[in-house]
């Protein structure tokens, strides 16, 4: 299933372009944040911009363009959106946990200490 860019109806081209540009710019902002933000735990927030509305905008834009041009609903892009929404939190959580683990085992005072069964506050004041 292929089509030429000139076959796209004008309203779909404009609407889809708006969504795709918003999505791509949000992804770019996420990447800027990845470079600009000073610590790892702040940087971990940056890619979620690209994976929430960045991906959502791109997928929505391409769905609008394909659906309007082929005159039947093209929905399988939504699988990408669902997949990215479900997998990104898992990767970021694992990465955050391993970073927390590494920082804790190195005794980095900036991260919250390992919660002790006796009392978590004691450990913190001991730092």
């Amino acid at each position: 299933m292929t089509f030429d860019l000139a076959d796209v109806p004008l309203w779909a081209a404009i609407l889809g372009s708006i969504f795709m540009v918003i999505g791509a710019l949000l992804t770019l902002v996420g990447a800027i944040g990845l470079v600009r933000l000073p610590t790892f735990y702040e940087r971990i927030h940056a890619p979620t911009l690209g994976t929430s509305w960045g991906t959502g905008g791109m997928i929505l834009g391409s769905m609008i363009i394909f659906t309007a041009t082929t005159a039947r609903p093209v929905l399988h892009e939504i699988l990408i959106a669902i997949f990215v929404t479900l997998t990104t939190p898992v990767t970021l959580m694992m990465l955050g946990r391993s970073a927390l683990y590494r920082d804790r085992s190195e005794g980095n005072p900036e991260v919250p200490p390992e919660p002790n069964i006796k009392d978590a506050v004691d450990v913190k004041s001991g730092d």
């Binding site: 971990i44 929404t85 479900l86 990104t88 939190p89």
Partner: peptide, 12 residues
Amino acid sequence: IVLTSTPGTAWL
């Protein structure tokens, strides 16, 4: 999943 996929909060 909700907290992590929201930008600005990350579950650790």
